[in-house]
Amino acid sequence: MTAEEIAEIFPNLKNYQITSPADYRYNCIAWAAGDTKNWWQPSDSPYLFWLRDDKSDSLENCIEVFNILGFNDETDSASEPEFEKIALYIDADGLPSHAARQKENGFWTSKLGEAEEIEHDTPDALEGETYGKVKIILKRPRTKVQNLL
């Protein structure tokens, strides 16, 4: 995506940098979970990855998936280096629309669909007509293994 396209789609996004090229194999949910090999989405299609048998398209289902990964405590976006955080977004219809993960340096990282990964300073920088709004932020203790992501 060009800088102009990003500015048009995410008008609140000011401080960011592209950190990896576009990749069709994985999406924002996958990247938030630390996976760059699979497209994470609740679906009956076997080529789409989901950790649960429940394939309902809902925020609750997404929350349950991240609960499985250890993100059990609801929190805010403040940087806590000892914790890894993920932010889940919903669109105007209340459906899950995006996920972002906070890095150890306090910045957030997002995979923009099939497009690039970006690093941005706050999760609400991606709020707007396209991704909706941040609905919930969850955290888990950061471990050495997770820091390898």
Binding site: N27, D57, L95, S97, A99, G113, E114, A115, T130
Partner: peptide, 12 residues
């Protein structure tokens, strides 16, 4: 593609 490349859910 211009309108949807950045979406993470195929339904979108």
């Amino acid at each position: 593609k211009k309108a949807t490349h950045h979406y993470s859910f195929i339904r979108q």
